[in-house]
Amino acid sequence: MRSPTPASAGLSNRSAVGQVGRVAVGTVAGIVLVPVLLVALAAAPIEPAGTVAGWIGRRLTWIDGVPRTVLPHGGRRFGLLAVFALLGVLTACIVALIVLGMVVSTQMTIAAITGGPVILFEADPGRVTWSTLAIFAVPGLVLLFLAVSGIAGIAWLERQTWKAFTRPGVEELAQEVNRLHTTLDDVVAAVDTERRRIERDIHDGVQQRVVALSILLARAERASDPQDRVQLHRRSREEAQQILDDLRDVAWRTYPAMLARDGLAAALEALRDRTSIPVRLDVEHDRIPDHAVETAAYFVASEAVTNVVKHANSQRIDIRSRLEGDRLIVTVSDDGVGGANPEGPGLSGIASRVAARGGRLLIDSPVGGPTKIEAEIPCG
């Protein structure tokens, strides 16, 4: 094992000192929030508690670098503020004792050097000597150690308090389990629907063309006229090419290889080029690292475009994909007749796909149009 170099050891030591400094400064800074916490607790109907809880989360994040974006809800939020207010008051008391100790030690040291009085103790000049200072040094250092340990303990309590109050309760966990069960059932149903659609496409499209191709080849084998045989072979080649095109369409609708290879923007461009209705595409982001998010977004756009082509009698389709914070938003709108059914197999399937990623699907399709379908999908 390689031993650390002096340079790396120095950097590590500086990093450790810096972290200790952050803990101390960040914990003591909690004193400033005490009046705000008390106001937030007293003004519960106005509900400034969410904003103040966010400040606490950002302060703790500054201390240890751990993001804290999930805030407690309801009574948990006010419990968090109450505990942090108590910890802030306790921190203020410890800081006050440290300051008082520093004032006392400074006056005693000056008195020992100059032989002057100690105003805080009303000690006469010459009463405080170096021996007196030595007697008080040991208990002073013990008290300083206890005070610093108290600051460190409060810093630890703050982090544990945040974890305790932001941890989901039993009811929230039960709701999440129910949501996951529902989403799982919807996803399974959507997968079964997709399988039936693929089977139908193959049966009604590819299979029928294969049967037609076999008939043409059989006729070509039986044809006695060379010209008829050439004509049948030509038609067979055309039919074989059409079968290949149909198979590519089925594969593309099942999962486009371009999506995995080149990303969402390229797949949406290919979708635009394959659509018979004019499509205006606006992608306002680079490739997204989360492949599952890109997949969900693509199938939202693909299924929405398919519905427009089949049912909307539209003249134009607009597709927009953008990032807002940590969410990818895909919007598909058209100028068709409207009346899209959210319970239909297509839209319900993509709604389940989006819900499985923790997102939501919004459908606005009044009778007479226009139609707007918007999916919000969390990234990461």
Rank of each mutant, 00 (worst) to 15 (best):
P6L: 05
G79T: 04
V211F: 12
G115A: 07
C379T: 13
E239L: 15
T166I: 05
M108Q: 14
L173H: 10
V89S: 03
D334Y: 01
K310A: 11
E303V: 12
A96I: 02
V330K: 08
R253P: 09
V17D: 13
F84N: 04
D124P: 11
A85I: 00
N313K: 12
G74E: 11
V206H: 00
T306G: 13
A40L: 08
V305R: 02
P48Q: 01
I135K: 10
L86S: 13
L146K: 07
R253S: 06
A43M: 06
D246E: 15
L281I: 03
T5W: 02
I46L: 12
A218M: 07
E238Y: 04
L100S: 12
A40N: 02
T182A: 10
R222A: 13
E221A: 15
D318I: 09
D186G: 15
R22D: 00
I377V: 08
G344Y: 04
T183F: 03
V95L: 10
M1W: 06
G153Y: 06
G263C: 02
I63L: 02
D64N: 08
I215H: 15
I63H: 00
V104Y: 02
E324C: 14
N13H: 14
E47T: 13
K372Q: 03
R22I: 02
L247P: 07
V104H: 06
V330S: 03
L120G: 02
I119A: 15
G54T: 03
L141P: 04
V89C: 04
A266V: 10
A301Y: 09
T254H: 07
L133N: 05
S12A: 14
W162I: 00
G126V: 07
V367D: 11
A189I: 04
L268C: 12
L157I: 02
E176Y: 05
M1A: 12
R197W: 14
V210S: 06
A260W: 07
D282N: 12
L90M: 09
